[in-house]
């Protein structure tokens, strides 16, 4: 499903002392099949944006309030389409939309509630199916979802979700979202609060899901390394607007602007610029593996300087 957003505005608590503009004129297109990254500092509007995608935040019915200077740009029209769903249309079937756009919130393990893992994962499945599912159907769907996130279904199904480890809980929570086989999967800070190994495992899981399960994966993050390692394209949010939409390797040519926005550039980009200062130019796509390869290739080609680069890498 292709996602098209044009001129999106959103304000929390309008007309009160707590008024904060979260989105100011956001336009963004995400193609089907992408592994898309949304990156931004706290309060940049990234979470607000993704909550629009499955209608948890609705477009305001009268667009006047959310658009401060509408007289100046009356030609500006807010558009938000997810596949065939037109979210500006009040009659849109939001249940069907939510079924096709899965949303994994930050710390999804805190939304677990049921007595057993099976029940919890089946929650979304039961909610979204129009007719009553048989126990076998539920079993089959839940088994598939639990196994794709890398857990043993037979071992897990009757356990309480609260007796699992942190990483397992998060996997169960993700299974609870993907069990309905959404076409688009949105994850808000999927690796938050995990140790480096756990982060890596979650990212591998997301790639697996992207290959086998959901056509489009969108991750929201503030960690540049995560984005640069994994995404096909990334959008940089800052103060409620989209600053750049670029593949990561081009994005990090704007290292200074990113730093000014309070974002970190990935470690590899920092190393490349350090090497550049020393007169060594390395072109790479900013993933750790590619960077190492290029540095080693450079070292092999310039044997005299070998020791220098060894230290840098």
């Amino acid at each position: 499903m292709r996602i098209v957003a044009e001129h999106l505005f959103y304000t929390y608590n309008p007309k009160s002392p707590f008024e904060t503009a979260a989105l100011r004129d956001v336009s963004l297109t995400i193609e089907e099949g992408e592994f898309f990254g949304i990156i931004g500092h706290t309060g940049s509007g990234k979470s607000t944006f993704v909550q629009h995608l499955n209608g948890l935040i609705r477009l305001p019915s009268s667009l006047k309030r959310s658009r401060p200077n509408r007289k100046k740009d009356s030609s500006v029209k807010t558009v938000l389409k997810v596949g065939d769903f037109d979210l500006a249309d009040k009659k849109t079937d939001f249940r069907a939309l939510r079924k096709s756009v899965g949303m994994v919130f930050q710390y999804p393990e805190y939304q677990l509630f049921a007595e057993t893992v099976r029940e919890d994962v089946a929650f979304g499945l039961k909610n979204f199916s129009s007719e009553k599912l048989s126990e076998e159907q539920i079993d089959a769907a839940v088994r598939a979802a639990v196994e794709v996130v890398g857990l043993d279904y037979d071992e897990m199904k009757d356990k309480s979700p609260f007796e699992l480890s942190g990483g397992q809980k998060r996997r169960v929570a993700i299974a609870g979202v993907i069990v309905t086989r959404p076409e688009v999967l949105v994850l808000d800070e999927p690796a938050a609060g995990l140790d480096p190994l756990g982060k890596q495992e979650i990212m591998q899981l997301l790639h697996k899901l992207h290959r086998e399960w959901c056509r489009t994966v969108i991750i929201v993050s503030h960690d540049m390394d995560e984005i640069s390692e994994n995404c096909t394209r990334a959008a940089v949010f800052s103060e409620g607007t989209v600053r750049y939409v670029l593949p990561p390797r081009e994005l990090f040519c704007h290292a200074q602007e990113l730093t000014a926005m309070g974002l970190d550039v990935p470690l590899t980009a920092k190393l490349v610029s350090l090497l550049h200062e020393r007169g060594i130019d390395i072109e790479c796509d900013f993933t750790a593996a590619d960077f190492c390869e290029k540095v080693l290739a450079y070292a092999a080609a310039h044997p005299k300087k070998e020791r220098d680069e060894g230290g840098e890498a």
Binding site: N54, L56, R98, M103, Q111, F128, G176
Partner: peptide, 26 residues
């Protein structure tokens, strides 16, 4: 939490009172 459960298709706005009370468990 409400948003997260709504994203999983939970419905808090329709049904009779027993159904609504049960819907708050998640």
């Amino acid at each position: 939490i409400k948003n997260a459960q709504m994203a999983r298709g939970a419905d808090f706005e329709s049904g009779n009172i027993i159904k609504r009370v049960k819907a708050t468990i998640p």
